[in-house]
Computed example of a mutant assay.
Amino acid sequence: MSIRKQFLKRKSVCKVTFKVPEEFGNTATLAHVVGDFNDWSTSATPMKRLKDGGFSVTVDLDIGRSYQFRYLLGQDTWENDPDADDHVSTPFGDSQNSVINL
């Protein structure tokens, strides 16, 4: 997994690119990034399949905040991003969410 942050000089947003590598992507036909920035919608932010078999999506997020997120691979496989800035327990207590700090 990887995260790339591109801070824009003239706007108070950051272009964040989320990427799922091919070793995870090859096991799924679709992928979504799901987080508090899209109200935890499992369909709002689909990721594009890359030629190498991975997935990627870029979203604009407000600077000065932290966001929790996870990747949904296929219909039911949840993955965290080891490259995230932090990880926190979910409200359900049985897993963790990835965190990105902007």
Rank of each mutant, 00 (worst) to 15 (best):
P91G: 10
L61A: 12
S98M: 03
V88H: 08
I3K: 06
C14K: 02
R65W: 07
G54H: 08
L61P: 05
F7T: 10
S98C: 04
L61K: 08
V33D: 14
D86N: 15
W40Y: 15
N38Y: 06
D39M: 04
V34L: 02
R4L: 14
L50E: 15
Y67L: 01
H32R: 10
S66E: 14
D81T: 06
D81P: 01
L72N: 09
R49S: 06
V16S: 04
S43M: 11
L50Q: 15
T58H: 04
T42Y: 08
S12Y: 08
H87F: 07
M47I: 01
T29G: 09
W78S: 01
S43E: 15
G74I: 12
V16R: 06
G74K: 09
W78C: 01
K9F: 10
D81N: 15
I100C: 00
V88W: 10
A28W: 01
F24V: 10
D94L: 07
E79W: 03
C14H: 00
A31K: 06
D81A: 01
N38I: 10
W78E: 05
V13Q: 02
R4V: 15
T58R: 04
Q68T: 12
Q6K: 12
K51N: 14
N80R: 12
I3V: 14
G54Q: 03
R10M: 04
G53Q: 01
T17C: 01
V34G: 08
D39A: 08
K5P: 11
N26S: 13
K19V: 09
L30G: 05
T58F: 01
K48R: 13
N101Q: 14
Y71C: 11
V57H: 05
V57M: 00
F24T: 02
Q75N: 15
S12L: 05
G25E: 02
S66N: 10
V57Q: 11
F18R: 10
L8I: 14
K19E: 12
S95C: 13
T17F: 04
K5H: 08
R10K: 11
R4N: 14
I63W: 03
V13I: 12
A84K: 07
V34T: 08
L8M: 13
N26W: 10
V99D: 03
G74R: 07
E22Y: 00
E79F: 00
W78Q: 07
G64L: 04
E23T: 08
S2Q: 11
K48I: 12
V59Y: 05
R49F: 10
V57L: 02
T29D: 15
R70A: 12
V59L: 11
A31E: 07
V57G: 00
P21N: 13
T17Y: 02
H32L: 01
M47C: 07
L72P: 09
C14T: 15
D76H: 13
K5A: 04
E23P: 00
L72M: 12
Y67M: 04
G54A: 03
G25S: 02
S12D: 13
T77Y: 00
S41M: 05
